[in-house]
Write a protein that binds this DNA or RNA. Structure first.
Lengths: 218, 218
DNA sequence: TTATAAAGAACTAAAGTAGAACATTTGTAT
DNA sequence: ATACAAATGTTCTACTTTAGTTCTTTATAA
């Protein structure tokens, strides 16, 4: 509807009239709006007139009239929206806790376990998430320890280098680094003592991508 | 009626006008809606005009006017709002986020930084907590990586083997394993490349005990 | 492939800036 | 009232920046 300068000028005029009772001159306006020539004010006012925000008596001094100002949202609505924004940034949500990963059971098989866990909201913004308890040492060099809670985003495929929940032979779910090489899928652990598994793509399915880790001490 | 992008754009325009009084530019819109080119905004606006949701003065800057907003919302917007509702219900615990650990600055010195972060309830049940961003590799073998968020419980002393925030010489805060040996305090890193620091008890103060780790991928 | 959508670059129009000159109105002194 | 000065509004030109439009290229999906 209005450009920032137009808006600023309109509000200045409106304010001045309401406060002082009389309309500011072009020179006063140019100082208030922060431009150095009256001609600019003239142009702005022409624009405002064209859009029916003000009216003027031509060639008369200080003869502007504000017809309308842009309508504002009630303050409490703005407050409400700020609250929601904050809540989105800072809240936690419940996501299902399915069970343990690297335990030899596909995730679907344990999906009935109806536990949930709460995680900060910004960890799980878009998409469907679930949590798994990490079991074993195969990812320790990536800072993923036995007992950690892995936050997983449901997905069917992954990019090379991402840490994924991979289901092998529809029987065994495991957390590994995903690497697609020609006609093989490599599931790479992050631990010198474990070996890379190289599998035919038909044997491996992505069930999710690692999105976060939560660990608890005591 | 409207596609999600169209709806999002329409609401953004409506909001901006109501909040700022002036219409956003195409560049501002493209950032808000999340597309990378103004031409996309142009197309969306043409669509919205065709459907009589907005009006524009062609070739004028910031000259859009919202005529109406839709009664029905696209499905994924509804999903989004459900998430918001859920997030509001699950409002979680706010704890202060002080800054970086192992950066050579005592925690009190950076306590004025008024950021907060949210953590799941069960991570911070009893006591006073704060969060620190981990910097450096000195604890990688304990699965604590550079960039992790460390949840710290405020405390003045610790048991052997606990990971603590230790303040050395009132000058340097660091995250290490705490070990009291006779008349010495050992601050043990969890990384072969780092050495154990052995200090006289008068030089070391416990500022908190590590209670949890939160890591985010992407 | 083909069709479609998004991104990007190039182009055009409008908005803003500045200074000066000019016109009109208003106030003041004669 | 008349003349003049001061204040204020208007017009013009030149230029810079910002914004809207159009077109081409690049991804993406069917």
């Amino acid at each position: 509807m209005l450009t920032p300068k137009q808006y600023k000028l309109l509000m200045f005029i409106d304010n001045t009239i309401k406060e002082n009772g009389c309309c500011p001159s072009y020179d006063e306006m140019k100082d208030a709006v922060g431009i150095k020539s009256k001609s600019g004010i003239f142009a702005l006012i022409e624009e405002l007139i064209e859009r029916d925000f003000i009216r003027k008596l031509p060639h008369k001094a200080r003869a502007l009239e504000v017809l309308k100002t842009p309508k504002f949202k009630p303050r409490d609505i703005i407050e409400e929206e700020k609250k929601i924004k904050l809540a989105l940034q800072n809240s936690s949500v419940q996501i299902p806790l399915y069970g343990k990963i690297a335990a030899g059971t596909p995730i679907e098989a344990i999906a009935y376990e109806n536990e949930t866990t709460s995680v900060p909201f910004d960890l799980v913004e878009r998409g469907e998430f679930y949590a798994l308890r990490v079991e074993g040492e195969s990812m320790v060099e990536a800072g993923i320890m036995d007992g950690d809670l892995a936050i997983i985003k449901r997905a069917n495929n992954a990019d090379n280098g991402q840490i994924v929940v991979a289901l092998v032979d529809d029987a065994e779910a495991t957390l590994k680094v995903w690497q697609k090489k020609d006609n093989e899928i490599w599931l790479k652990p992050c631990n010198k003592d474990y070996e890379i598994r190289k599998l035919h793509p038909s044997r491996v399915k992505v069930q999710g991508i690692l999105n976060g880790i939560i660990r608890r001490y005591n």
